[in-house]
Amino acid sequence: MFALSILFLMPFLWMLSASVKIEAEVFAYPIKWLPTQWHAIENYKEVWVGKFPFYKYYWNTIKVTVATTVISSIVSALAAYGFSKIQFAASKYLFLIVLATYMIPQQAILVPQFILYRQIGFFDSHLGLILLCSFSVLGTFMLRQFFMGIHNEFIESAKIDGAGHWKIFWRIAFPLVRPAIATYAILRFIWTWNDYQNPLIFLRTDKLYTIQLAMQKFTTINGEFYSLMMAAAVSAIVPLLIIFVIGQKSVIEGIALGGVKG
Protein backbone atom coordinates (compact mmCIF):
# COMPACT_ATOMS: atom_id res chain seq x y z
CA MET A 1 0.00 0.00 0.00
CA PHE A 2 2.88 2.35 0.78
CA ALA A 3 4.44 1.65 -2.64
CA LEU A 4 1.10 2.24 -4.38
CA SER A 5 0.59 5.47 -2.44
CA ILE A 6 3.99 6.74 -3.63
CA LEU A 7 3.02 5.86 -7.20
CA PHE A 8 -0.21 7.85 -6.96
CA LEU A 9 1.51 10.76 -5.22
CA MET A 10 4.27 11.15 -7.81
CA PRO A 11 2.25 13.37 -10.22
CA PHE A 12 1.32 15.66 -7.33
CA LEU A 13 4.92 15.73 -6.09
CA TRP A 14 6.14 16.59 -9.60
CA MET A 15 3.55 19.36 -9.84
CA LEU A 16 4.64 20.72 -6.46
CA SER A 17 8.29 20.52 -7.49
CA ALA A 18 7.65 22.24 -10.84
CA SER A 19 5.78 25.08 -9.11
CA VAL A 20 8.93 26.23 -7.30
CA LYS A 21 11.34 25.99 -10.24
CA ILE A 22 12.45 28.35 -12.93
CA GLU A 23 10.99 27.56 -16.34
CA ALA A 24 14.22 26.07 -17.71
CA GLU A 25 14.28 23.32 -15.05
CA VAL A 26 10.67 22.16 -15.32
CA PHE A 27 11.31 19.59 -18.06
CA ALA A 28 14.95 18.86 -17.24
CA TYR A 29 15.96 15.23 -17.76
CA PRO A 30 16.60 13.37 -15.59
CA ILE A 31 14.02 14.94 -13.30
CA LYS A 32 15.38 17.26 -10.63
CA TRP A 33 12.96 16.93 -7.74
CA LEU A 34 14.67 19.73 -5.86
CA PRO A 35 15.40 22.84 -7.91
CA THR A 36 18.90 24.24 -8.10
CA GLN A 37 17.38 27.72 -8.10
CA TRP A 38 14.28 28.22 -5.98
CA HIS A 39 11.62 30.38 -7.64
CA ALA A 40 8.66 29.69 -5.35
CA ILE A 41 8.03 33.23 -4.12
CA GLU A 42 8.11 34.69 -7.64
CA ASN A 43 5.85 31.98 -9.11
CA TYR A 44 3.20 32.06 -6.40
CA LYS A 45 3.27 35.85 -6.22
CA GLU A 46 2.56 36.01 -9.95
CA VAL A 47 -0.32 33.57 -9.53
CA TRP A 48 -1.95 35.30 -6.56
CA VAL A 49 -1.38 39.02 -7.19
CA GLY A 50 -0.06 39.18 -10.74
CA LYS A 51 -1.80 40.17 -13.96
CA PHE A 52 -4.43 37.48 -13.31
CA PRO A 53 -4.94 37.55 -9.51
CA PHE A 54 -6.18 34.25 -8.15
CA TYR A 55 -7.37 35.60 -4.81
CA LYS A 56 -10.52 37.05 -6.41
CA TYR A 57 -11.51 33.71 -7.91
CA TYR A 58 -10.56 31.90 -4.71
CA TRP A 59 -13.01 34.03 -2.77
CA ASN A 60 -15.74 33.39 -5.37
CA THR A 61 -15.16 29.64 -5.19
CA ILE A 62 -15.06 29.54 -1.39
CA LYS A 63 -18.30 31.54 -1.19
CA VAL A 64 -20.15 29.35 -3.70
CA THR A 65 -18.75 26.06 -2.38
CA VAL A 66 -19.39 26.69 1.32
CA ALA A 67 -22.91 28.03 0.73
CA THR A 68 -23.79 25.15 -1.60
CA THR A 69 -22.38 22.57 0.82
CA VAL A 70 -24.29 23.93 3.83
CA ILE A 71 -27.61 24.34 2.01
CA SER A 72 -27.37 21.03 0.15
CA SER A 73 -26.47 19.12 3.34
CA ILE A 74 -29.43 20.58 5.26
CA VAL A 75 -31.93 20.15 2.42
CA SER A 76 -30.80 16.59 1.67
CA ALA A 77 -30.91 15.67 5.37
CA LEU A 78 -34.43 17.10 5.78
CA ALA A 79 -35.66 15.29 2.66
CA ALA A 80 -34.00 12.05 3.80
CA TYR A 81 -35.63 12.33 7.23
CA GLY A 82 -39.01 12.99 5.67
CA PHE A 83 -38.81 10.00 3.33
CA SER A 84 -37.56 7.66 6.07
CA LYS A 85 -39.45 8.68 9.22
CA ILE A 86 -42.63 10.48 8.14
CA GLN A 87 -45.28 8.17 6.79
CA PHE A 88 -47.71 9.71 4.32
CA ALA A 89 -49.73 8.53 1.34
CA ALA A 90 -47.63 7.47 -1.64
CA SER A 91 -44.37 8.34 0.13
CA LYS A 92 -42.57 5.35 -1.39
CA TYR A 93 -43.80 6.20 -4.88
CA LEU A 94 -42.79 9.84 -4.46
CA PHE A 95 -39.33 8.74 -3.36
CA LEU A 96 -39.05 6.49 -6.42
CA ILE A 97 -39.97 9.46 -8.64
CA VAL A 98 -37.27 11.58 -6.96
CA LEU A 99 -34.78 8.73 -7.31
CA ALA A 100 -35.68 8.27 -10.98
CA THR A 101 -34.58 11.84 -11.74
CA TYR A 102 -31.02 10.76 -10.89
CA MET A 103 -31.00 8.70 -14.09
CA ILE A 104 -31.47 11.83 -16.21
CA PRO A 105 -28.06 13.11 -17.39
CA GLN A 106 -27.38 16.67 -16.27
CA GLN A 107 -26.48 17.60 -19.83
CA ALA A 108 -30.03 16.75 -20.90
CA ILE A 109 -31.55 19.48 -18.72
CA LEU A 110 -28.94 22.19 -19.23
CA VAL A 111 -30.93 24.01 -21.92
CA PRO A 112 -34.20 24.18 -19.89
CA GLN A 113 -32.22 25.28 -16.83
CA PHE A 114 -30.43 27.93 -18.88
CA ILE A 115 -33.71 29.33 -20.24
CA LEU A 116 -35.36 29.24 -16.80
CA TYR A 117 -32.47 31.03 -15.12
CA ARG A 118 -32.47 33.73 -17.81
CA GLN A 119 -36.19 34.32 -17.27
CA ILE A 120 -36.14 34.49 -13.45
CA GLY A 121 -32.97 36.60 -13.26
CA PHE A 122 -30.61 34.07 -11.68
CA PHE A 123 -28.33 33.81 -14.70
CA ASP A 124 -24.77 35.09 -14.26
CA SER A 125 -24.96 35.24 -10.47
CA HIS A 126 -23.50 33.30 -7.58
CA LEU A 127 -26.97 32.92 -6.06
CA GLY A 128 -28.14 31.04 -9.14
CA LEU A 129 -25.06 28.83 -9.07
CA ILE A 130 -25.65 28.03 -5.40
CA LEU A 131 -29.33 27.20 -5.87
CA LEU A 132 -28.49 25.01 -8.85
CA CYS A 133 -26.74 22.47 -6.62
CA SER A 134 -28.65 22.98 -3.39
CA PHE A 135 -30.58 19.73 -3.74
CA SER A 136 -28.97 16.38 -4.40
CA VAL A 137 -30.85 13.19 -5.20
CA LEU A 138 -27.74 11.18 -4.36
CA GLY A 139 -27.39 12.98 -1.02
CA THR A 140 -31.05 12.34 -0.18
CA PHE A 141 -30.76 8.66 -1.08
CA MET A 142 -27.49 8.25 0.82
CA LEU A 143 -28.70 9.97 4.00
CA ARG A 144 -32.09 8.21 3.88
CA GLN A 145 -30.33 4.89 4.32
CA PHE A 146 -28.73 6.15 7.52
CA PHE A 147 -31.94 7.71 8.87
CA MET A 148 -33.69 4.39 8.31
CA GLY A 149 -31.15 2.83 10.69
CA ILE A 150 -32.47 4.95 13.57
CA HIS A 151 -34.87 2.89 15.64
CA ASN A 152 -38.43 4.17 15.52
CA GLU A 153 -38.64 3.81 19.31
CA PHE A 154 -36.55 7.00 19.62
CA ILE A 155 -39.01 8.86 17.42
CA GLU A 156 -42.08 7.50 19.24
CA SER A 157 -40.63 8.35 22.66
CA ALA A 158 -39.98 11.91 21.55
CA LYS A 159 -43.54 12.20 20.19
CA ILE A 160 -44.93 11.02 23.53
CA ASP A 161 -42.93 13.78 25.21
CA GLY A 162 -44.59 16.29 22.91
CA ALA A 163 -41.79 16.87 20.40
CA GLY A 164 -42.66 17.62 16.80
CA HIS A 165 -40.77 16.44 13.76
CA TRP A 166 -38.68 19.62 13.61
CA LYS A 167 -37.40 19.12 17.18
CA ILE A 168 -36.99 15.37 16.64
CA PHE A 169 -34.88 16.02 13.57
CA TRP A 170 -32.51 18.51 15.21
CA ARG A 171 -32.34 17.00 18.72
CA ILE A 172 -32.37 13.26 17.96
CA ALA A 173 -32.03 12.25 14.31
CA PHE A 174 -29.43 14.79 13.18
CA PRO A 175 -26.88 14.03 15.96
CA LEU A 176 -27.21 10.27 15.39
CA VAL A 177 -26.33 10.52 11.69
CA ARG A 178 -23.85 13.40 11.98
CA PRO A 179 -20.92 11.32 10.62
CA ALA A 180 -22.95 10.44 7.52
CA ILE A 181 -23.95 14.08 6.99
CA ALA A 182 -20.32 15.15 7.45
CA THR A 183 -19.27 12.56 4.85
CA TYR A 184 -21.80 13.89 2.36
CA ALA A 185 -20.79 17.49 3.12
CA ILE A 186 -17.15 16.67 2.33
CA LEU A 187 -18.16 15.00 -0.94
CA ARG A 188 -20.43 17.93 -1.82
CA PHE A 189 -17.61 20.37 -1.11
CA ILE A 190 -15.24 18.47 -3.41
CA TRP A 191 -17.83 18.15 -6.19
CA THR A 192 -18.72 21.85 -6.04
CA TRP A 193 -15.10 23.01 -5.82
CA ASN A 194 -14.18 20.93 -8.89
CA ASP A 195 -17.33 21.82 -10.84
CA TYR A 196 -16.44 23.24 -14.24
CA GLN A 197 -19.58 22.70 -16.31
CA ASN A 198 -22.11 24.73 -14.31
CA PRO A 199 -19.94 27.86 -13.89
CA LEU A 200 -19.03 27.63 -17.58
CA ILE A 201 -22.71 27.64 -18.60
CA PHE A 202 -24.25 29.95 -16.01
CA LEU A 203 -21.53 32.57 -15.46
CA ARG A 204 -20.50 35.21 -17.99
CA THR A 205 -18.93 38.03 -15.97
CA ASP A 206 -15.19 37.64 -15.40
CA LYS A 207 -15.29 38.92 -11.81
CA LEU A 208 -17.76 36.13 -10.90
CA TYR A 209 -15.59 33.28 -12.21
CA THR A 210 -14.78 30.35 -9.95
CA ILE A 211 -11.35 28.77 -9.64
CA GLN A 212 -11.99 26.20 -12.38
CA LEU A 213 -12.82 28.84 -14.99
CA ALA A 214 -9.91 30.92 -13.73
CA MET A 215 -7.59 27.94 -14.21
CA GLN A 216 -8.71 27.55 -17.81
CA LYS A 217 -8.24 31.26 -18.52
CA PHE A 218 -4.91 31.33 -16.67
CA THR A 219 -3.70 28.38 -18.75
CA THR A 220 -4.71 30.18 -21.94
CA ILE A 221 -2.78 33.30 -20.95
CA ASN A 222 0.28 31.54 -19.49
CA GLY A 223 0.28 28.38 -21.59
CA GLU A 224 4.01 28.53 -22.24
CA PHE A 225 4.95 29.02 -18.56
CA TYR A 226 4.52 25.61 -16.99
CA SER A 227 5.98 26.61 -13.65
CA LEU A 228 3.21 29.21 -13.25
CA MET A 229 0.58 26.71 -14.40
CA MET A 230 1.78 24.20 -11.79
CA ALA A 231 1.75 26.88 -9.08
CA ALA A 232 -1.84 27.69 -10.01
CA ALA A 233 -2.77 23.99 -9.97
CA VAL A 234 -1.21 23.49 -6.54
CA SER A 235 -3.12 26.52 -5.24
CA ALA A 236 -6.37 25.05 -6.57
CA ILE A 237 -5.79 21.64 -4.96
CA VAL A 238 -4.62 22.71 -1.49
CA PRO A 239 -8.15 23.47 -0.08
CA LEU A 240 -9.32 19.98 -1.08
CA LEU A 241 -6.39 18.41 0.74
CA ILE A 242 -7.09 20.49 3.83
CA ILE A 243 -10.78 19.56 3.83
CA PHE A 244 -9.97 15.88 3.42
CA VAL A 245 -7.37 15.88 6.20
CA ILE A 246 -9.75 17.69 8.57
CA GLY A 247 -12.75 15.56 7.64
CA GLN A 248 -11.22 12.11 7.17
CA LYS A 249 -12.22 11.11 10.72
CA SER A 250 -15.86 11.87 9.91
CA VAL A 251 -15.59 9.94 6.65
CA ILE A 252 -14.26 6.88 8.50
CA GLU A 253 -17.00 7.20 11.14
CA GLY A 254 -19.62 7.44 8.39
CA ILE A 255 -18.31 4.29 6.69
CA ALA A 256 -18.17 2.48 10.04
CA LEU A 257 -21.73 3.59 10.84
CA GLY A 258 -22.88 2.21 7.48
CA GLY A 259 -21.07 -1.06 8.16
CA VAL A 260 -22.69 -1.45 11.60
CA LYS A 261 -26.08 -0.66 10.08
CA GLY A 262 -25.56 -3.33 7.43
Rank of each mutant, 00 (worst) to 15 (best):
Q113Y: 06
R144P: 00
T101L: 08
L131F: 11
K159N: 11
Q119D: 14
L143Q: 02
Q119Y: 10
I104C: 03
P112S: 06
M103Q: 11
A158Y: 02
I104L: 14
P175I: 06
Y117T: 02
I160R: 11
A108N: 10
F146Q: 10
L127Y: 08
A108E: 11
C133N: 14
A108K: 12
H165V: 00
H165G: 01
I168P: 07
N152M: 12
R178W: 14
A108L: 12
I181E: 01
G149E: 06
F174W: 10
F123H: 13
D124F: 09
W166H: 04
I120S: 05
H126C: 08
Y184F: 15
Y102L: 13
A108H: 05
S136F: 04
E153S: 15
A180N: 11
R118W: 07
D124N: 15
T140S: 04
A180S: 13
I168T: 15
N152F: 13
A173T: 09
N152H: 12
V137M: 10
E153G: 00
G139M: 02
V111D: 11
F169P: 03
H165K: 02
H126N: 05
F135I: 15
S157Q: 15
I120N: 05
I155R: 03
M142L: 15
A163D: 13
Y117D: 06
E156Y: 14
H165E: 15
G128D: 05
L116Q: 09
L129M: 10
I130Q: 00
T101P: 03
P112T: 06
A182H: 06
N152Y: 12
L131C: 05
Q119G: 02
R178S: 14
G121F: 06
H165S: 05
A185M: 04
W166G: 08
D161R: 06
F154D: 04
A182D: 06
Q145N: 11
N152L: 14
Q106S: 12
F174P: 05
Q113G: 03
